[in-house]
Amino acid sequence: MIQFLQQLINGLSIGSVYALMAVGYSLVYSIMSFSNFAHGGVIMLGAYFGFFALTLLKLPFIPAFILACAGTTLLAILVERIAYKPLRERNAPFLYFIISAMGASILLENIVIATIGPTFRTYPPVIPRTPIQLGALAVGRLDLIMFFISAVCLTGLILFIEKTKMGKAIQAAAYNIKACALMGVNTDKIILIVFGLGGFLAGVAGVFFGMKYTVYPQIGNITTKSFIAAVFGGLGSLPGAVLGSVLLGTIETLVAGYLSSQFRDLIAFVILIGVLIFRPSGIMGKTTVDKA
């Protein structure tokens, strides 16, 4: 029982970080109907930004964290302006967006390999490694912080989308971007905000991933799993992305804990294929149909 709870806590903590990444995929998908594969690259650079802010600039943790998030926000917006905006202006088919996204992803990874190098780097020990004892449970401080900050960020995002005028405009654009423009909404600005939000959360996730594991140019590959989580929950749905991520994180840690960590990714992909076969729109995917 103790072991199960322990695994559950680890699962929730890692799942919440998947959620930070997954909502980035979902937000962009909901508006532009393509999967922004460059998102993984932005997360990877978030990990590097945080790492260098701590080691080179010798900033304290919180300013370093904020700097990393500001960096990824700008980077995500830059990717949109360079890789996608020219395609949007030409009304290019969505396949072109996916190819451009893959190109941007490969570009980001190789820029890092060419300039920073392919070596693995370890974050300085900012958060003490000693766990907190809660009765018989030992909870990692980093896991606790990851879970808490992720929950705050995701709640903030959902409140923004649900409660503000701009958030409603984002939802309207997700349903039909042309009709949204007809309401006087500057849809170019909406797209910018969506990429900025995704980029900010990518920074949070990147720093956490760097701290939890190590920093290396292919760290973006991990984000494949958050993409799976987004599909699992229903691509384009924010609550779906969060739910899918938490479920995936939990299942993964339980598999690693009870079966073998070798099986962890295998299970992730089996779930993805299963979802695609039996429920292609995911747990909470868009299913509304237009009436004539």
Partner: peptide, 17 residues
Amino acid sequence: LIFANLSVLDNLRLGAY
């Protein structure tokens, strides 16, 4: 092209964006 995912009231409010 109404916003099927939003309430009637939200649709009207978006008109006044």
